[in-house]
Computed example of a mutant assay.
Amino acid sequence: MTIRPAKMEDHDIVPEMMLQAMEDIVFAFIGKEDVEEAIQFLTHFFRRENNQYSYQNTFVAVDENDDIWGSITCYDGGKLEALRTPVLEYMRSRYGVDVTPENETQAGELYLDTLAVAPSAQGKGIGSALLQHIIAFAKAQHFSQLGLLVDFENPNAQKLYERVGFKAKETLTFMGGEYYHMVYNLR
């Protein structure tokens, strides 16, 4: 397995994985529970630059045939507003959804927005490998911490993050859900 930066051409696989990681949130963004529309929404942004779901902010785990097994999307928390603006504008213009989500990150934090592993590859260490890659990336970029939100109702994900070294810092409400804000201190 190799981890590489995502390419725009990965748009046929990665958005579906992203949806796996953030299903209810995307449904709130598009105003309906429609899997196909949610994938189209994420694909729209994955293929474009300068937004929080862009291929520019994504790494993928691939096998020797370059088949994608997992993805991780993260960005500088200090750039949240700029990266989120095109998403909110699109939500308003295309879906009539006018919301301003709570800030889930802040400056100084590399924010891990989505982590997903293909169902056929789960339990093989892909998620842990992607997390280790992002920890090294965050250190090299001189971030003080790596942060993420994990749903109260997803204890398996929380255990994975804890095994890697993340600690629950606080609880947050985001788009109507309850989450732990977990951090990995890099200093």
Results as ranks from 00 to 15, higher is better:
M1T: 07
M1K: 10
M1Y: 00
R4P: 08
R4K: 07
P5Q: 11
A6H: 08
K7P: 04
M8P: 12
D10M: 00
D12N: 14
E16R: 09
M17P: 05
M17Q: 12
M18P: 02
Q20F: 06
Q20S: 08
A21C: 10
M22Q: 05
M22L: 11
E23S: 08
E23D: 08
I25N: 11
I25H: 07
F27S: 07
F27Q: 04
A28M: 15
F29W: 15
F29A: 14
F29R: 09
E33Q: 13
E36Y: 12
E36I: 11
E36M: 07
E37T: 07
A38Y: 00
A38C: 11
F41Q: 03
L42D: 02
L42G: 01
F45E: 02
R47L: 08
R48N: 14
N50D: 15
N51E: 06
Q52E: 12
S54A: 08
S54R: 04
Y55K: 06
Q56H: 12
F59G: 09
A61Y: 09
A61M: 09
V62M: 07
D63Q: 02
N65D: 14
D66E: 12
W69Q: 13
W69R: 12
C74V: 02
C74H: 02
Y75K: 07
D76I: 06
K79R: 13
L80R: 14
E81D: 14
A82C: 10
R84K: 10
T85Q: 15
L88D: 02
Y90M: 12
M91P: 02
Y95C: 02
G96H: 00
T100V: 11
P101E: 08
N103F: 10
A107R: 02
A107P: 03
A107T: 06
A107H: 06
A107S: 09
G108W: 08
G108F: 08
E109Y: 10
L110S: 03
L112A: 04
D113M: 09
D113P: 00
A116E: 00
V117H: 00
P119S: 04
P119H: 07
A121C: 14
Q122V: 13
K124I: 01
K124C: 13
I126F: 07
I126Y: 00
S128D: 11
A129P: 05
A129K: 11
A129N: 07
L130N: 01
Q132P: 09
H133M: 04
H133A: 01
H133D: 05
I134W: 06
I134P: 05
I135L: 11
A136H: 14
F137I: 07
F137K: 11
H142W: 13
S144I: 10
Q145S: 15
Q145K: 15
L146T: 01
L146K: 04
G147K: 08
F152P: 00
N154Y: 03
P155C: 11
A157Y: 05
Q158I: 05
Q158E: 15
Q158N: 10
K159W: 04
K159V: 06
Y161M: 02
R163S: 12
V164T: 08
K169Q: 07
E170C: 10
E170V: 06
E170G: 01
E170T: 13
E170F: 05
T171W: 04
L172I: 13
T173F: 01
T173P: 04
F174L: 10
M175R: 05
G176N: 13
G176F: 13
G177C: 06
G177F: 03
E178V: 03
Y179M: 01
M182F: 03
Y184W: 06
N185V: 05
